[in-house]
């Protein structure tokens, strides 16, 4: 375990050095991340100007959920962006060299990219998070702070696990350019808003089938003690472990049918 983490840091560090060679990329991606997330906030603000409350959720409550998406997404992008390179790695044969190195192939894939634009997400998410906390008026007790820290630490792992799971489709779809995982990523964006506003089917999908809601909505309910299901938020670590196991399972199934490429 310690060796795995240490090597993971080494690989990411190497990617960081490599990425810094393309400084332009870094700035473009960061600005793009800020703009995308920022637009979402403008959209929210516009809605709440017309309707002050949605299903019992006020503007700043939703901003809190929104900021959690930005934060968890930021961490996933920064630390495990390699999941998104799976289609190219698998279907252009790059996995061959990874498989003959003495380090977990999945961890090598995950650490094969560092998404510096995650910093943009983290900056925006961080400021929204702080602003939201100042406005939601929660009474902070040591217990609540501990719960919040615990739950929030696991939330990014939910996203990382689901990224691995959906990107493993590369082993089956056999194309280096697939929109499949992006489609699910977009589905996950629904979790930026309180999922109680959706119908039953969407709610079940987001909380059980592909539990994207555990990267934002459920942790937020736990922190705010809001809604009838706030206890579910405490299950975030369970969801995180489940998603990571699903991702690992899919990757292993994929390796069994991996066909390499070229000669």
């Amino acid at each position: 375990m310690r060796r795995n983490l240490w090597l993971y840091r080494r690989c990411l560090g190497a990617q960081l050095r490599a990425t810094l060679e393309y400084e332009g990329d870094f700035w473009i991606m960061s600005v793009a991340a800020l703009l995308t997330q920022g637009m979402g906030i403008v959209f929210l603000w516009a809605i709440f100007r017309a309707i002050p409350q949605i299903n019992g959720w006020r503007f700043w409550d939703v901003v809190l959920i929104y900021s959690l998406v930005a934060l968890t997404e930021g961490i996933a992008v920064l630390l495990a962006q390699g999941a998104w390179s799976m289609a190219v790695t698998v279907n252009l044969g790059g996995l061959d060299t990874i498989l003959v190195r003495p380090y977990s192939p999945l961890l090598q894939v995950l650490s094969s990219q560092i998404g510096m634009n995650g910093l943009g997400n983290l900056a925006l998410g961080g400021s929204l998070f702080v602003a939201a906390l100042l406005h939601v008026g929660v009474a902070w007790s040591p217990g609540r702070i501990a719960t919040a820290a615990f739950v929030l630490a696991f939330a990014p792992l939910v996203k990382i696990g689901l990224n691995v799971l959906t990107n493993c489709s590369a082993f089956w779809l056999k194309t280096p350019w697939s929109m499949f995982p992006f489609a699910f990523h977009t589905l996950g964006e629904l979790a930026r808003y309180p999922i109680s506003i959706y119908g039953v089917v969407v709610r079940v999908i987001l909380s059980v089938v592909l539990p994207y809601a555990f990267m934002s909505y459920f942790p937020a309910t736990a922190v705010l003690s809001l809604g009838s299901s706030s206890w579910l938020g405490v299950l975030t670590p369970v969801a995180a472990v489940w998603c990571l196991l699903l991702g690992r399972w899919a990757f292993r199934r994929g390796l069994l049918r991996y066909e390499s490429a070229g000669s």
Partner: peptide
């Protein structure tokens, strides 16, 4: 695979095992 990789060395002529940007 990990244990196996410790005991072998592989070169694919068509493909590098080096990190491209390092």
């Amino acid at each position: 695979r990990v244990e196996n990789a410790r005991g072998i060395g592989v070169v694919f002529g068509q493909r590098t095992s080096l990190w491209w940007d390092l």
